[in-house]
Design a protein around this nucleic acid. Structure first.
Lengths: 200, 200, 200, 200
DNA sequence: CATGAATGAGATTTCATTCAT
DNA sequence: CATGAATGAAATCTCATTCAT
């Protein structure tokens, strides 16, 4: 019982660190955040961070893993019951929106992250693409689809969304890109891909 | 006269620095390149770099300005006589391909660059969008276009291209994304936007 | 009664710590061993080490004291009945051999140890020298000795042995210096000191 | 010419750093000296040390290399013309004495040094053993030697000397072990090995 | 002007020691 | 007492920038 208490406390500190790191990363950027920033944000000493995460790389990777999983999970939840493409897209954006500042950082720093972290990030993308592909396939069978490979359709969509996020400072200096452009993006992208096939 | 000679000399050193910085940036990344790397690549002393560019930020900005302008110019040249959208897209990619490693770095590090550098980068994008818009408008008038705002069409295209470049390590580890995927991207994107409008 | 139990328990933990520290010191070196290594080896918590030994220095000193005493004692046992110098030398090496890895560490780190630890180490040497001197004196009286001060003879012997131990990595990378060189050292050293005195 | 000046200045700083490091090492010990101690002793900034020696290990190795070479060289000089073993031993000790505090640190920390440094140190020992072996062989041929392998005789001698140095704090707290014991060591060691061979 | 040696403000990481539970 | 989470004082190393020559 006592043991459980201590473990709980440690677990709490760990969670607090992950959470604060998540917040600080979202705010200041991932690679620009010093270990001491996180310690400070979590109200613990410098050394404590290292007691929980052996190196900076480990911390970064775990934060991305943790919240990447959350994002993927949430997207699953939201997208699971979707019938039509519009719904999937909306679910995707809704999932992102809940973590927008952090997700945006991932988009921005993507290639500069430690390799392990990048791997995690890639797996998050895969999770998202799953639902997209499924619905795309279904629509295709219904004859509503178009003759463009699904993965390319997905890349177009993600490319579009990431483009807006990557340039969030231009598109939405106040920071809410999805809120401001989400509907537009969905509408236009849908319109583009869902027109009935060309007719002679 | 002597003065002129000296100025000439200085100008030459400056050009050499810009060029070598461009090369090293393309290779090692922009923010990961040390001032001394550039000095070494240019065969001048470490201090000389600072004689020409007061700070690292200034150097980075000027390199991006210089080569951004070149990229924009080249795109103009290539896209100027284009009649159809496919041609514009091809011109765009051709322009990028000539500077692919450096351009890719800009895509990747975009938001981490000094602000001034980012401004420059934005202006490069504008230059490119100009031709796109012009042809899009023309096609629209000819009845071949679709009822999606041109800037969105552009963002989709650029988003798609940048998505491939930003993930070049996954898509084309050998480093030639455009060569490998250029045609695919153009074909599919064109197919998507150029189908005759829906008919009742 | 309960108290006694507890004291017993405590005493046991203390012994376990000393023993495990001894083992870890022999393996990883004394000054290179972290307090937490010892805790781990002993299967107790990090803090427990400090409950038994106020500081690292105290722990090191007590380990050396404890095992130094053991080494000295064992040497006494082995050397006690020795008649001839060869026997004493053999006893000495036999004593060392039983603790070779740890003893070697003492030789190597000798001067870098906390002062108290060093004092202990010196006293171990004295214990060993006692038997050496006794036999040397006896042989001298029998006319078999030579006219070199006993303490110098001892220092030569110890110097020789320690030289091999201190360079164990060169002499016996597998780690058994005494096993490999013990006989050679004894034979040659004996030959040197035990030749009958010069004769005209 | 100007270039020569700058180079000279750099060389001077480098030499100063090596020299001060040598002094500080002799005083405080090698592994216990912080890079900043050396910077301070040399009157330069912390970063300067790293400008000249990429890592601590490199610095340590170079100091040992430099002064190791000096010690070996000096020993060569002193031992070169020696006819008899006593002279060689005296030369050896004289060579050591000129660098006693530093040499003592090498003896003490030997096994704790970075591997590269240890290699250097081993090569210094080899250099010294060369003269010893040469004279020993000569004496052997003259019939003055004894039937103990030369390398063992050398190890006995070096073991003896190092034993005194390693325990300098006990033997000569004022720090001049060789001055105090040199003659004694030579005399007794010589007496031991140079007695005419046993006679029946 | 060019040079490149020197500077010093950080950043990460380690580990003995403390102390609340 | 035992526990082990938290602490924080060091120590190494990097690199943009300065400045005497």
């Amino acid at each position: 019982m006592k043991k459980t208490n201590r473990q709980l406390q440690k677990e709490q500190t760990r969670e607090a660190l992950l959470e604060k790191a998540f917040e600080v990363f979202a705010q200041r950027g991932i690679m620009n955040t010093r270990m001491s920033d996180i310690a400070q944000a979590a109200g613990v000493s410098h050394g404590t961070v290292f007691a929980h995460f052996r190196t900076q790389e480990v911390l970064i990777t775990e934060v991305i893993e943790t919240y990447g999983r959350k994002i993927a999970l949430r997207t699953h939840e939201l997208a699971d019951s979707c019938e039509h493409m519009e719904e999937v897209l909306a679910a995707h954006l809704a999932g992102i929106m809940e973590f927008e500042p952090f997700y945006t950082r991932l988009v921005i720093e993507n290639r500069l992250l430690p390799l392990a972290a990048r791997d995690v990030w890639v797996s998050v993308q895969s999770a998202i693409s799953f639902h997209f592909s499924q619905v795309a396939e279904r629509e295709r069978q219904r004859g509503r689809g178009i003759d463009i490979p699904t993965h390319l359709l997905f890349n177009m969509w993600v490319g579009l969304v990431h483009y807006y996020l990557a340039n969030s400072d231009l598109f939405a200096p106040e920071g809410h890109v999805i809120k401001r452009y989400g509907k537009t993006l969905i509408d236009n992208y849908s319109k583009l891909i869902q027109r009935s096939p060309e007719e002679k």
